[in-house]
């Protein structure tokens, strides 16, 4: 067998597509892999323009891509991660994946003759398998990262993620001298509720109340479960008046709403503390402390009310 015959035999059996174009983008040669997966007769393809045979190709993009190969005389790549496929080809896992066409990694290679690029060789690898598993992995990672952010019971942000959000919002507000408000909610006599009706009932109240509060906030507000029956909301670009307004509205809604658990109807109220960022707040924890003090005041002065942090340090200035 001559070297040429070897090459022919191998290229016909290769599980990679080989497509040779001239610099006018006419198909000069292709291998068996492409003939089979494109499901077209070789005799009807050779000599034809690549856009005629594969009308699905993004023409302008493809031309520009190949022009870089020709002009710079260098190879170029196209990964399934950016473009799932260029050519609409069938693949080898039609049963066990949901991919309609073969996911592809394509390599564009210049072929020189007389020190000028005369042809372009396009290598097309079937990566449907890789694509399938990577997509599954991405989905799993996404679920993991969600589980890492979300409180399992109430489906709002968990403490850790909520604090990270506050940290970011706090730095941003300080840097650009923007407003930032914090509201902390605590459900009144929650322990008594648990003792009277059981923990499952307490859980139901937490779930419903969290959803209620969330529905009353803006999209840009960040809401999380701070601890047991304590919730907290970050309100960017909000002043004390605005935040107190929101807090009061939410307090009223919680007081009004009736939660049904099995055959019981339960009513609950909340104590609320509001604080806004001041020049003296060096760390986001200062803001939490201020809101906490206000919350304690609301509790101590009879519950079911909103109290505002008076920014003691600020008035001392």
């Amino acid at each position: 067998m001559s070297v040429n015959q070897f090459c022919n035999t191998i290229s016909e059996q290769l599980n990679t597509g080989i497509l040779i174009l001239d610099i006018e983008f006419n198909i000069v040669e292709w291998n068996r892999f492409l003939e089979i997966h494109a499901h077209k007769e070789t005799s009807e393809v050779i000599g034809k323009n690549v856009f005629t045979v594969f009308p699905e190709l993004p023409k302008r993009w493809f031309e520009r891509k190949l022009s870089s190969v020709i002009q710079l005389n260098t190879q170029s790549f196209c990964s399934w991660e950016q473009r799932h496929h260029l050519f609409e080809l069938s693949h080898t896992r039609p049963i066990t994946t949901d991919s309609h066409f073969m996911a592809q990694n394509c390599t564009f290679l210049p072929i020189e003759s007389d020190s000028k690029v005369s042809h372009i060789s396009i290598l097309i690898e079937d990566v449907t398998d890789v694509c399938h598993y990577q997509s599954k992995l991405n989905k799993a990672l996404e679920e993991l990262s969600k589980a890492n952010r979300i409180d399992g019971l109430t489906q709002v942000f968990n403490r850790k993620h909520w604090e990270e959000c506050l940290d970011k919002e706090f730095s941003r507000a300080r840097r650009y001298d923007h407003g930032l408000a914090l509201i902390m909610f605590d459900l009144d006599h929650f322990k008594r509720l648990n003792d009277t009706y059981g923990h499952q009932c307490g859980d139901a109240v937490l779930i419903e109340t969290a959803q209620k509060i969330k529905s009353l906030l803006r999209l840009c507000d960040q809401f999380g479960r701070y601890g047991g029956e304590e919730f907290a909301a970050i309100l960017p670009e909000t002043d004390l008046v605005g935040a107190t307004d929101v807090a009061e509205r939410i307090r009223k809604e919680i007081e009004k709403s009736v939660i049904k658990y099995q055959d019981k109807t339960i009513q609950i109220s909340s104590s609320v503390g509001v604080a806004t960022i001041s020049k003296n707040n060096k760390r986001y924890e200062d803001l939490i402390s201020n809101a906490d003090v206000a919350l304690y005041e609301a509790k101590a002065s009879g519950r079911n009310k909103v109290c505002v942090a008076n920014n003691i340090e600020y008035t001392l200035e």
Partner: peptide
Amino acid sequence: EQIIDLSSILTTTFLN
């Protein structure tokens, strides 16, 4: 894709 494309062009042109 733009970033990847440009990277490839810069790298291969210089290294060639």
